[in-house]
Amino acid sequence: MSTALAAPNPWSLVPPLGNLDAYISAVNRMPMLTLEQEQQFARQLKNDNDVDAAGKLVMSHLRLVVSVARQYLGYGLPHGDLIQEGNVGLMKAVKRFDPDQGVRLVSYALHWIKAEMHEYILKNCRMVKVATTKAQRKLFFNLRSMKQGFKSDSAAIDGDTHRDTLSAAEIDSMATQLKVKREDVIEMETRLSGGDVMLDPGPSDDGEDSFGPIAYLADTHQEPTALLEARARDTMASDGIRTALDGLDDRSRRIVEERWLKVQDDGSGGMTLHELAADYGVSAERIRQIETAAMKKMKKALTDYA
Rank of each mutant, 00 (worst) to 15 (best):
G202K: 07
A156D: 14
V197S: 08
R182Y: 02
A169T: 12
M188P: 00
D160K: 15
D205K: 07
H162G: 12
R163E: 06
S154V: 13
K147C: 12
I157N: 12
V180N: 00
V197P: 03
L192T: 03
E187G: 02
T176N: 06
D200Q: 05
D158N: 15
D200R: 03
R182D: 02
D153L: 15
T165N: 14
S173T: 12
L178D: 01
V180A: 01
E208N: 09
D206N: 10
D158Q: 13
D158M: 14
D164K: 15
S154G: 15
S152R: 14
V185C: 01
D164Y: 07
V185T: 02
I186L: 09
S145L: 13
P203W: 03
Q148W: 09
G202Q: 07
I157T: 15
D184I: 07
G195D: 10
V180G: 00
E187I: 06
Q177G: 03
S204Q: 07
V197I: 14
S152F: 08
F211D: 11
D164I: 15
A175K: 01
V197K: 13
S145C: 14
T190V: 10
D164Q: 14
T176I: 09
L143M: 12
Q177F: 05
D158G: 11
V180R: 00
T165Q: 12
T165G: 14
V185E: 00
S154W: 02
F211Q: 12
D172R: 12
K181G: 08
S173C: 08
G194W: 03
P201Q: 02
S204G: 15
P201D: 03
M174K: 01
G159S: 13
L178M: 04
Q177S: 09
M146N: 02
K181A: 11
I171R: 04
S145K: 15
G194Q: 06
V185I: 09
R163Q: 12
S193F: 04
Q148E: 15
M198G: 07
M174T: 04
T165W: 08
E187C: 04
M198A: 09
R163V: 11
E183I: 10
M146Y: 02
S193M: 09
E189M: 06
V185D: 00
K179C: 07
S152D: 13
T190I: 05
A155N: 11
G195F: 08
M174F: 03
L143F: 04
S193G: 09
L178K: 01
M188V: 05
D209N: 11
D200W: 04
P201S: 07
A175T: 05
D160S: 15
T165P: 06
S204M: 10
E189H: 07
I171H: 01
V197C: 10
D172E: 13
K151D: 12
R144Q: 10
K147I: 11
A155S: 13
A156R: 15
V197Y: 07
S173F: 03
K179I: 06
A168N: 08
L178Y: 00
D184W: 01
L178P: 00
L143Q: 03
A156L: 15
